[in-house]
Write a protein that binds this DNA or RNA. Structure first.
Lengths: 229, 229
DNA sequence: ACAATAGTGTCTCTTAGACAATATCGA
DNA sequence: TCGATATTGTCTAAGAGACACTATTGT
């Protein structure tokens, strides 16, 4: 009965040069040894409390990262997706600032622009597409993109992140109004971005109570992004 | 390794007397034999193509229903949720018109108002809460509630369904504008709702291409429903 | 004719976007 | 002082909600 292969995979995403990237690793187990794929592995029923725990462990062990945001994406399953047989993968996605990956990379994490991803084993291509769609959809209505910024950031920086994800410019005034409405940031007193040859920008941080939680709005930041499910 | 119990469950919902109800069944297997619970069961690796297929089979076998809308909700997992051991349930949710359940009920489906659900085994209570939240959130931005209507329905009927789910009255003019914008319905020529002591209403049906697909909008129909994730 | 609800027209208020004025830094 | 970008103020246009008017049926 239980001849089902139970795994988890993590779509770890970050922003690099204003382009969304996915973290890939060379597989160290059969099948597809040595091929780039999503970080993932078997669920350890003995050690893992649940699948989220398994995802966190995988991220920690294989990429050396503790993600400030981790959410279940979906479960991918079936007879065809794994040559070993009927399998099931509970997939999580994580967003981290680029420097976190850079710092943690004692391991060989490969960052691939999401438009360049090709030739992945299993149904990892489809999984990544689903994850990217989810991040884009959710970003239009929530504070999700702040997890791509570091601890401190300026509003223009954050706007750039939103624009990179949504793929279109956002009106500056509207953006600030929306961020104000989301009520998720707090200005860091006296902390300004320095070094630039122009007026310095105020630094902000996420309000503590929004760690791992999103602030939502009922109206999209942009206009389109209306994919039919 | 694979001592993981792999199951699927289905949160089958319908609208009855303008109240959202969940379909429950008496369990015919241990544990919790005879107790009301969500329809569900083991994944059959031999028969099921994937988990969606397993959910459809379960719905068919246990409730005699083929749902016009079925979507994956999430996967619930862990050591604690099932007395038999580390388990994992891929949960789907389905919306059907009330008469479909009534017609199919040669079996003992119990419809329970979602506010009255209590004492369910496993983590079914939490699963149902998640499903209800999902349906409410999604209804504010999409055509999802049409699946609670029958084949043909009037706009006032549909508005009533939206209002029942969102839990607040909706402006009639705004509602019609929004439905127009969603562009998902087509009027049935000459078909009107009769028998009422007032002007008859035009009957509509879902445009064919939206079967199992949602039409989305970028602005919510109501104003609130801003749960922090 | 009356009661009741369907379907529309229109006004107002809120909100998003355009535009522009002011602020503040390094060079 | 100049160039560049942050921040804020304000006008305009689009969309949502309120209100009311017309349409059509059964009684």
């Amino acid at each position: 009965m239980s001849s089902i292969i139970c795994t988890i995979d993590v779509v770890l995403m970050t922003l690099k040069n204003s382009v969304l990237h996915v973290a890939l690793l060379k597989r160290d187990h059969a099948p597809f040894v040595g091929v780039l794929a999503l970080p993932g592995g078997y669920i350890h029923a003995e050690d893992d409390v649940d699948t989220r725990d398994a995802a966190e462990r995988t991220l920690r062990e294989k990429a050396g990262i503790v993600s400030p945001y981790l959410e279940q994406l979906a479960t991918f399953s079936g007879r065809a997706r794994d040559p070993r047989g009927w399998s099931l993968s509970v997939v999580y996605y994580a967003l981290v600032p680029n420097d976190v990956i850079a710092a943690a990379s004692h391991l060989e994490v490969v960052l691939m622009p999401i438009d360049k991803v090709r030739g992945l084993p299993f149904d990892h291509q489809k999984i990544i597409e689903t994850a990217v769609r989810r991040v884009r959809d959710k970003s239009a209505y929530s504070s999700l993109p702040v997890y791509l910024c570091g601890e401190l950031f300026t509003l223009p920086q954050l706007q750039g992140v939103y624009e990179a994800i949504l793929g279109e410019p956002i009106n500056k005034v509207s953006f600030r109004r929306k961020i104000e409405e989301l009520d998720m940031l707090e200005a860091v007193e006296g902390a300004m971005e320095t070094g630039k040859a122009h007026r310095p920008a105020q630094l902000y941080r996420l309000k503590p109570r929004y760690s791992q939680h999103l602030s939502l709005t009922d109206r999209a930041l942009n206009a389109k992004s209306l994919t039919s499910h």
